[in-house]
Write a protein that binds this DNA or RNA. Structure first.
Lengths: 210, 210
DNA sequence: GTCTATAGCTGGATAGAC
DNA sequence: GTCTATCCAGCTATAGAC
């Protein structure tokens, strides 16, 4: 990977972070990367292809970076702490914001849909494996669809990131509320087998209805 | 409100829905509205001002529409059902998608930030009032930050909408998982006073730490 | 209020010098 | 590989006819 190609990848993330999907262009990317505008097309063909590459490479790098730390998590509360730290640090680096903007663009640009979905899937897989490990042996694993939960967590991260852009205090309150809610999961572990079975039936009935 | 002004408001929502915040313009809006492009500027001054007006009027109308139905909800499970119906219908009308795109644009266009935040707040207030009514007298109200929960729900709606654009099946699974999770709230009502107090202390300790 | 026409600008993409 | 120069499309916004 040549220096220029890497600078363009970093520049793409920086440009989207600064100008959003609506304001990103070969010129804004080149300016952020400190290279000539024509090099975008020489190295990547089109702006979309560069965004695709940046999405793939950037997300893979961040997921790999957090993967080791997530592998050390031993409880749901620890996971919440790591999740908060992850959110804060990625927000500074702009990767959550980058993914959110790509996702917004992917809604109407089908060339962005596949790479954005694949990048998000990297996070989903990582979160799912952590949740599955933590909930192994827990009664909650029998009740919950862990794969669905991992997707919900990922989607909520995106939504909270965007919401924080127009109401930072509101986002903080929302995250604290989710912390409280997540602790509810832990109480299931404290239930006896009879109460647990009753809960399980309750959830099955409730979700089958809708 | 003249016919043309209303057509432009509807056209703005339709254009954002079709082309996203990155592809919306006076021309695409005028085409969707079936009017001349110059009328955008005659009636609203700038494209941003038109988007602002569409955001305000469109969201106020949809919130008012659902407000009556939400007022009839009597349980959390009913609320989940209404929430699903709301998501499906608004997805067809494009209002959730519109808000998501506005939110994405608001991250880097400060002129969109205030109106988008205000529009989202209309949903937050509505959800908060329903939650507060449903949880009145419930032990969960003593534990939870209802205002934070309402914000989390709103943000999650946005995130799920965007996620659904790149992985529809994944979004469905995520929503089902959230259904399961929401039922957990109901079990708190079944707890006796001692278990409830223990839970409350547990949540307080867990959230104070982070 | 609505239309045409257009000025002035920015964007994607390419050709060709170096 | 990198640069300058440039074409052409599409954009905001306005002027002026109707």
């Amino acid at each position: 990977m040549s220096d220029t190609k890497q600078r363009l990848l970093d520049g793409a993330i920086a440009a989207i972070r600064e100008h959003g999907i609506a304001g990103v262009s070969a010129r804004t990317i080149a300016a952020a990367a400190g290279v000539n505008q024509a090099l975008v097309f020489y190295h990547y063909g089109t702006v979309d292809d560069l965004l695709t590459a940046a999405c793939q490479a950037g997300t893979a790098e961040r997921v790999a970076h957090w993967s080791t730390r997530l592998a050390e998590v031993r409880s749901l509360r620890e996971l919440l702490d790591v999740g908060r730290a992850l959110h804060e640090q990625e927000q500074e680096l702009g990767n959550v914001s980058f993914l959110a903007q790509m996702l917004a663009g992917a809604q109407s640009d089908e060339r962005l849909a596949a790479p954005t979905g694949a990048a998000l899937q990297l996070w989903v897989d990582e979160i799912e494996s952590v949740l599955r490990r933590l909930l192994a042996g827990s009664p909650f694993a029998e009740i919950a669809d862990v794969a669905g939960l991992a997707r919900a967590v990922s989607a909520a991260f995106i939504g909270l990131e965007l919401y924080g852009g127009v109401d930072r205090d509101g986002m903080e309150r929302a995250m604290s509320a989710l912390d409280q809610l997540a602790v509810l999961i832990e109480i299931v572990d404290d239930l006896g087998p009879i109460a647990r079975r009753a809960l399980q039936g309750k959830i099955t009935r409730a979700t089958r209805r809708s």
